[in-house]
Amino acid sequence: MIELRFHRDIYAGESVDEALKVFERFATWEREQTDDAWVVRCTHDDAAREKKVANELANYALGLTIRRGGAT
């Protein structure tokens, strides 16, 4: 399992949600909100694939955040 902590000051929650929608079918996901982060946990039987999908999701969420002009 890989845990990604998307800091709320950096990543837009909508962008993380949007990224999760896109990558939903590629792994098993868990999500949680803390005071300062959107937490996403990625699980896949294949460790290499798990890492790749988690990384791609993070890139995607960052790209969407930047496109919308930032986290807020």
Partner: peptide
């Protein structure tokens, strides 16, 4: 500033994986 970090990150997301965190106030 964060805007500069966004700018650089956006240029790099097609060549590598970029993850930004904020470990402490005033630091990325």
């Amino acid at each position: 500033p964060l805007q500069a970090l966004y700018g650089a990150a956006f240029i790099f997301i097609d060549r590598c994986y970029v993850f930004i965190d904020k470990p402490a106030q005033g630091q990325f």
